[in-house]
Amino acid sequence: MAEGLKERIQADVKDAMRARDKDRLTTLRMITAGLQQKEVDDRVELDDAGVLALLDKMAKQRRESIEQYEQGGRDELAQRERAELAVIEAYLPQPLSDAELDALVDEAITATGAAAMADMGRVMGELKPRVQGRADMGEVSARVKARLGG
């Protein structure tokens, strides 16, 4: 049976403890705490898609923090965020190339029969599970808008 993403993270926590890798362990514990909090708040057991969505959100937060710390001249804080981001990104799937993303957008537009901006929600609903964690949703949205003439 294939190991789920959540189980892989939990196994990596144990490995980091054994290796006494304090920085990695801290980030992994932060991830597991976030997963547990989400499960408690929503009263659900997260599947791989839910875990990916949370990891994607955490990665986005780190990227924004890095940018703000660099602008503020806080390089030591930016470096710590980069280290956390590297651990988080290890669990995210390979990012989509521009060509792959364009192909998925075209497929979703065809599949939903979208013809105008009013159909954008249906297209995004079709795309989200397929690109979650593999592309920035803001960029996906911009590409869909451009295709639908928005």
Rank of each mutant, 00 (worst) to 15 (best):
L5T: 00
L5V: 01
Q10C: 03
Q10F: 07
A11W: 03
V13R: 06
M17I: 14
R18S: 12
R20F: 13
D23Q: 12
R24N: 12
T27C: 09
L28C: 08
I31E: 03
I31K: 00
A33Q: 10
Q36L: 10
Q36K: 06
K38P: 06
D41E: 15
D42Q: 13
D42A: 15
R43H: 03
L46N: 04
D48Q: 06
A49K: 10
A49R: 10
L52S: 04
L52K: 01
L52D: 09
L52E: 09
L54T: 02
L55R: 01
A59K: 00
R62T: 04
E64N: 12
S65M: 13
I66Q: 03
I66M: 09
I66G: 12
E67Q: 14
Q68W: 02
Y69S: 06
Q71Y: 05
E76C: 14
L77Q: 14
L77E: 14
L77A: 08
L77V: 04
A78S: 10
A78P: 07
R80Q: 10
R82V: 06
V87E: 05
E89H: 01
E89R: 00
E89L: 02
L92W: 02
Q94F: 05
S97G: 14
D98K: 07
E100R: 04
D102H: 06
A103D: 14
V105K: 00
D106K: 06
T110H: 07
G113M: 05
G113L: 12
G113E: 15
A116Y: 08
M117F: 08
V123P: 00
M124P: 06
K128R: 15
P129N: 04
P129S: 05
V131E: 11
A135I: 01
M137G: 03
S141P: 01
R143F: 05
R143V: 09
V144W: 04
V144S: 01
K145S: 14
A146Q: 10
R147V: 03
G150F: 00
G150H: 05
